[in-house]
Design a protein around this nucleic acid. Structure first.
Length: 348
DNA sequence: AAGTTGACCAACCGCGTTATT
DNA sequence: CAATAACGCGGTTGGTCAACT
């Protein structure tokens, strides 16, 4: 035996509200209030509506000071921040935006803001992933690396002539390797490929964190003078001297300048699962470099340019608390984190 | 011009939570 | 304290309109 219906379904009107119904309900509530009983209200008002329907109409449309229409940039930011912090708890989010209803915000998020955010993360005008200078060229194959090292994922990129070799930053905890090729082209650029296949020439170890499902691919390049010029592809808490969660930094040299590698630690709202990302900054100014963790078992198709389709389905976007440059994607449903993908990209 | 697709959004429905008896 | 009723939330549906084929 299920729950008893809240009203006589056969005798209540459904569907859009007419102006007459609106006027009746509004006038009644403004005069007498709701009486603390929505179920009994329609009869008092003289409406053939379910009490729940009246409540919804009042809360979402008729009550005073409701705002509809365009959301401001400030509202966008606030919604994103709150969504990142607490997830889809729309009523709590709505409480922070005066005049907005949870329904409005929910609709806005699902139909517009989510897409808008995606286009900000990866601008459609510049979908080609690029490595930051001094590395040149675009990623020729922009497959993110799967955490399953048995997969034959790979990517390749071109480094300028100054970069002769790649070195891992941290020692791998397990026998996981990326295989690289390193071929100079006619312009004396060095072409690197990182691959989990055995087809390539040189092995480089990489970290693989079983618990977090993160592929940790951190490398630096050495130039002719054997100076280290740092290139950080992303990583996790294996990163040396950068394991604190308070955003403290380790300093690295990259592109001839000193940078701080800042670790962002984020607590996912629903699952309580800690995820991490990194941003690179110079004297506190964050560079346009991002490390992304994409965790969605449903991701099956990717565009050639590397943009993941459907990356938000069933998942949530987590933005670091400082509104900085680190974006993580997580899927709270995937407790085993079996299909996470790490991606590093740079855009201009 | 007609049919199809997709975006948008108001409204509905089911269920967990809270209040009342 | 248990049973019941109502509330409130969030996921989902379905109607409308515009763009596209």
């Amino acid at each position: 035996m299920g729950r008893a219906p809240c009203c006589d379904k056969a005798n209540v009107k459904k569907g859009p509200w007419s102006p007459e119904e609106d006027a009746k309900l509004k006038e009644f509530i403004e005069k007498f209030g709701t009486g603390g009983n929505w179920i009994a209200l329609p009869q008092k008002v003289g409406l053939k509506r379910c009490g729940k329907s009246c409540r919804l109409r009042w809360l979402n449309y008729l009550r005073p000071n409701i705002r509809h229409g365009e959301f401001s940039d400030e509202e966008d930011k606030l919604i994103c921040t709150l969504y990142a912090t607490i997830g889809s708890r729309w009523s709590i989010i709505a409480a922070q935006l005066p005049g907005r209803t949870d329904n409005d915000i929910k609709n806005y998020w699902n139909t517009k803001l989510k897409k808008k955010l995606m286009s900000m993360i990866i601008p459609s005008s510049n979908l080609q992933a690029k490595f930051p200078p001094p590395f040149s060229g675009t990623l020729q194959n922009y497959q993110p690396l799967y955490n399953d090292y048995n997969n034959s994922s790979f990517f390749s990129f071109q480094a300028s002539a100054n970069y002769k070799s790649l070195h891992t930053i941290s020692a791998p905890p397990q026998n996981h390797f990326l295989y690289t090729t390193n071929n100079s082209d006619n312009n004396n650029n060095n072409n690197f490929s990182l691959s989990t296949t055995t087809a390539a020439a040189t092995q480089y170890p990489y970290n693989y964190d079983q618990n977090q499902g993160l592929v940790d691919f951190q490398y630096y390049g050495k130039d002719d003078n054997n100076n280290n010029n740092m290139l950080v592809f992303g990583g996790n808490d294996h990163q040396p001297s950068c394991s604190s969660s308070d955003g403290s930094c380790s300093q690295v040299t990259y592109g001839g300048k000193d940078y701080q590698v800042k670790q962002e630690e984020i607590m996912a709202a629903a699952g309580g699962v800690c995820r991490q990302g990194f941003v690179i900054s110079n004297n506190g100014v964050e560079e346009k470099q991002k490390f992304m963790l994409i965790n969605n078992p449903n991701i099956t198709d990717q565009k050639a340019n590397g943009v993941l389709e459907n990356s938000c389905n069933n998942g949530s976007i987590v933005i670091n608390n400082n509104g900085g440059n680190s974006f993580l994607f997580n899927d709270d449903d995937d407790e085993n984190k079996t299909c996470e993908k790490g991606m590093y990209y740079y855009y201009q």
